[in-house]
Amino acid sequence: MSGLPHSSLERQRRRAAWLFLLPMLVVLAGVAGWPLFRTVFFSFTDATLATLDGFQGVGLDNYLWLVRDPVWWRAVWNTLVFTVVSVGIETALGLGIALILNAHLPGRGLLRAAVLIPWAIPTVVSAQMWGWMFHDLYGVVNAILMGLGLIAEPRAWTADPDLALPVVIAVDVWKSTPFMALLILAALQMLPRDLYEAARVDGVHPVKVFVRITLPLIRPALMVAVLFRTLDALRVFDLMYVLTGNSRSTMSMSVYARQYLIDFQDVGYGSAAATLLVLVLAAATVLAVTLGRVRVDAGR
């Protein structure tokens, strides 16, 4: 009859907790867990969109074809270049904008409102807007650059294999830098103010303050933001698809996988590509968590 370590109240709460979690877990299992399992499963079959219920196992065939397809490797390369360059630029620019926003100077309300605009615009819309601005014949970019004498004749920005990927990256930088800036700004605003007053009293040079104080303190938040953006960039689809279609020069892994899955209806092969993409993302996460020591935590 002695009191158990955990009796009624805690038990009741725990039971309620699982009951409350159940609907969410069922839904997530249904829309994420099961489909993911099916994708991995399909990747070992010859299923097509028309024959989703009649297919045969083909072992690793799909993967073997995949690694021998130069277009796939081009897609991997494109995705990695896109991710590294765009996230790199976004981090640098975002840091700069966040520092400006954090300085108590006139015009920062306007600036903050302005940088929110690209973030609010749907990716498809921004792709179309920039697609129009980069239009080879009637685009404003060509008009301005020619007006300034920087280029002699109009460029086919999105069609030129050498220019297409940089254009895609530029649009992504425009669209995603605000997100980065806002996350970094939030981290900056949590820094104790008296630290900076102390540094100023001591006469430390602002650049040194930034490198020695600010950067180390916001590093954890910065790493989380970079990780979020990296994972987002690795699965990029909308931007390439709308701006340059299924063009090889910009095709990302997601575009490649979807092209086989839906356009070519080759579910088995497309699933293999999608599965590899998941593995790349998982590897990036593991790398970030171990090497970068990123800690993701919903508060404590």
């Binding site: 002695s2 009191g3 370590p5 955990h6 009796s7 009624s8 109240l9 805690e10």
Partner: peptide, 9 residues
């Protein structure tokens, strides 16, 4: 009753 005793009555 907001905490539960580990032992005792």
């Amino acid at each position: 009753g907001l905490e539960e005793p580990s032992a005792g009555d």
